[in-house]
Design a protein around this nucleic acid. Structure first.
Lengths: 103, 103
DNA sequence: ACTATATGTCTAGACATTTCGACGTATAGA
DNA sequence: TCTATACGTCGAAATGTCTAGACATATAGT
């Protein structure tokens, strides 16, 4: 039984924590699943297929970006988003490895 | 761009959704990390190392159990919990595979 | 400089989650 | 049956999250 609550949570778990929070919402899951392989979408495109208002979509995109799930780049007037696949893959792999090793 | 919002979300994602929600909370992460390899803990033990009240811990344990993250069994007066490692491993693997295949 | 387009931010209200005390249930032992 | 222990549940209050309108910023074209 590990009673040391003050110890630093493993880095893989810190990443995973934000990913869990970011993807624990159905709207954000749908946004993620809107992307097809290697695709880049701007905000208007995502709003168009969403049932939410633009500010709400912007809010969710911010959470996904800050969690590292999505990357973004501004090109002219538009901001393009894409799935940060290497980050997601690494985070899942790290969590999987931590599970095997400690739990 | 996938615009089909009505289609069924893949089963691996449905599992993962609940796991994300369940583990997207710091208290629940700490509860999970309290367990050591193969360990079974009763509610009182978990409450003892938590900063939360028993009803609050009970609430979080219920969410973790319903998400499949923890298993539980009543033995006499006590209810023991343990980490459902095979389920977690499978869920992470499925999500990892979905990521590679579709995103 | 002016206008239109694309996006982000702020704020208030709506909504959902979390928390804990109080109460109820179940089991074991005297 | 009575008492003590271990849990779960209910309900109200506190807290947190989400949403959308209004406003602000930034870019491109005229």
């Amino acid at each position: 039984m590990n009673t040391d609550y003050s110890r630093a949570i493993p880095e893989a778990w810190q990443h995973m924590s934000r990913v869990f929070t970011a993807l624990g919402d159905e709207h954000r899951q749908r946004i993620l699943l809107t992307f097809e392989r290697g695709e880049r979408l701007n905000v208007s495109q995502i709003v168009a297929v969403s049932t939410l208002s633009r500010p709400a979509v912007s809010h969710h995109l911010k959470i996904l970006r800050e969690a590292g799930v999505l990357g973004s780049e501004k090109v002219g007037k538009e901001v393009f988003f894409w799935v940060n696949k290497p980050f997601l893959a690494e985070t899942f792999d790290n969590t999987r490895a931590y599970l095997e090793e400690h739990l």
